[in-house]
Every structure is written in C-alpha cells, then in structure tokens.
C-alpha cells in the first residue's frame, strides 16, 4: 500500500515537472506573439525593398536580406565540402592513436568556443593578415570555421548509421575505399548530412557577433555585387534598430526579426522533413 504522503509527493513532483516544461512552450509562444504584434504593421513590400534610413517609415531590410543571402551562399559553399570531407575522413579513414584522439577532442572543443572568439580570429587572419578586408569573403570564411564542427558532427553521426554490411558487400566486389565512400556510404548518409547542414546554416544566418567583429557594417545602402564587397546582414540591421531608443525603430527591428525567424523556421522545417523521410527510407 502506498502511503498518502508518497502519493501527494508524487503528484506534486509531476505537477512541477509538467509546469516547468510547458512554461518553456509558453515562453516560445509569448516571444513569437510579442514580436509579431510589434512588427507586423511594418512588414510590407516597402520594408523589404528599402535600404536603411534615418526615418523609420523609409527604412528597410533590403541590404540585410541580400547580404544574408550572399553570405549564406558563400558560407555554404565553403563549409559544406570541408565539413563533410572532414567528417568522412574521421569516420571512414580515421587515424588511430594519439593524433586521432586529438582531432576528436579538438572538434568537441571547437563546438564550444564562443562565436565572438571566431570573430577575433577572422578579424586577425582574414580581414588583416590575408587582406580580405571587411568583405563578404571574410565574413563567410569566419562563419564557415564557426559552423564546421557542427557539420562534422552531423556528418559523422549519419555515416555511423550506415550499416557495415553495405561496406563489406562493396569491398567484397573489389571496391576501393573511395568507391565505397562515394558510391555507397555517402548516398545513404546524405539525407542525415543535409539535415545537419541545414541546421548549421540556420544557426549561421542568425549569427551577429562574429560579423560585427570582422567588420560588417549596419548602415549600408547597396547590394553586394561580389565577394570582396562590404556587406550587412539581417541580424545586424535588427541589432542596429533595436539599439535605438525610438519605439518606431524597435518595431522595425521586430519586423526584421519576423523575416529572420521565418527563414530560420522554414530551414528547420525542411530539415525535419528530410529527417522524417530518411527514417522511412532506410530501414535495414
């Protein structure tokens, strides 16, 4: 027989755990409604199609939108091959012993380095040492270093999920390692890798601090035309507006956030979709 005190205790505990969890859901809802209610009025074509301005009614996100698109395209094309190749190397080729261990621990630690520190690295190496200046290229290289560990981890996890029987089947036909890797392992692991890559990019698109350090500017009134151009990004424009005292600019910031978060949510949704499809397809 369970004593009433124990039952009461159990009920109270369950109640607290439930409340704690649903509070976080509530926070998300409050956050989203707050931003929507602040920003929706400013969200129109003129907002999407204007450059920054001292007058809130004339100000827009255009430079940020194009800057973010450029930056993401560039970051993706740098970080995806490097991250995926590094993941393939660690998982399929792997080096044993102390060096392998160092690479391993190093990746885990890199993932925990604050993004602003990557900014300082980018500033010194890309902006100043390589002389790329405050360009899209500097920003993209910095962000690539930042998200590489995430892509590596995602790649390794998806590769580990590929059954060994497939590898052995391929080797038994006289396949070489790179045939097995590109012909068998990569195609199976690809959906998982894509999920990880999209999530990593959705993190990168919201990054602000490292870009401030490498010199992205918030007040820019042109669209970048090449990788050596100066640029701004959506989060930076949002930061600039949010930092001003006028309520109108706060609402502009909220409108910018709506755009930014929508993009991020769509990316997350696509990632979940791919993951879902993958789980259905590959059952061994």
């Amino acid at each position: 027989m369970i004593s009433p005190t124990r039952i009461r205790k159990e009920k109270a505990f369950k109640f607290i755990a439930t409340v704690a969890t649903w509070t976080s859901v509530l926070i998300l809802i409050v956050l989203l409604t707050h931003i929507l209610s602040e920003g929706w009025r400013w969200l129109d074509w003129q907002f999407m199609d204007s450059f920054p301005s001292r007058f809130p009614e004339k100000a827009g996100l255009k430079a940020g939108i194009f800057g973010s698109i450029w930056l993401m395209a560039l970051t993706a094309s740098i970080s995806i091959p490097i991250g995926v190749f590094a993941g393939l190397f660690l998982e399929e080729y792997g080096i044993k012993g102390i060096i392998g261990k160092i690479i391993e621990v190093n990746m885990a630690n890199l993932a925990g380095v604050p993004s602003i520190v990557y900014g300082l690295l980018g500033l010194t190496v890309f902006v100043r040492y390589f002389g790329f200046d405050r360009s899209l290229l500097s920003g993209a290289l910095t962000l690539s270093l930042l998200i590489m560990p995430v892509i590596v981890v995602a790649t390794r996890e998806s590769i580990r999920a590929v059954p060994n029987s497939i590898r052995f089947g391929a080797y038994a036909m006289g396949a070489r390692k790179h045939h097995v890797v590109f012909g068998q392992v990569l195609p199976v692991a690809l959906p998982g890798i894509m999920t990880g890559v999209i999530l990593a990019l959705s993190r990168a698109i919201g990054e602000t601090a490292p870009l401030i350090i490498v010199g992205a500017v918030s007040y820019i009134s042109f669209i970048p035309e090449g990788i050596m151009d100066e640029f701004t990004v959506m989060p930076l424009q949002i930061y600039n507006w949010a930092g001003r005292p006028q309520a109108d600019f706060h609402q502009l910031a909220a409108a910018g956030i709506i755009v930014l978060v929508s993009v991020m949510l769509v990316m997350n949704f696509v990632a979940v979709l791919i993951r879902h499809k993958m789980q259905k397809r590959y059952r061994f």
């Binding site: 497939i166 052995f168 391929a170 038994a172 036909m173 396949a175 068998q184």
Partner: peptide, 25 residues
C-alpha cells in the same frame, strides 16, 4: 576480391535500384 567474389550470411543489397546493384561493381 575482384576475382574471388563473396556472398554474405545476411543479404546485403546496396540501397540502390536492382539495376544499379548489378552494375555498380
């Protein structure tokens, strides 16, 4: 391995089409 083939305990077809399973090797 090219000249001495192997069939495993559990069927391990490649996650590809039937056609490509044959032609891959």
């Amino acid at each position: 391995r090219t000249r001495i083939g192997m069939v495993f305990q559990r069927p391990n077809p490649f996650p590809k089409s039937i056609f490509n399973n044959i032609t891959w090797g």
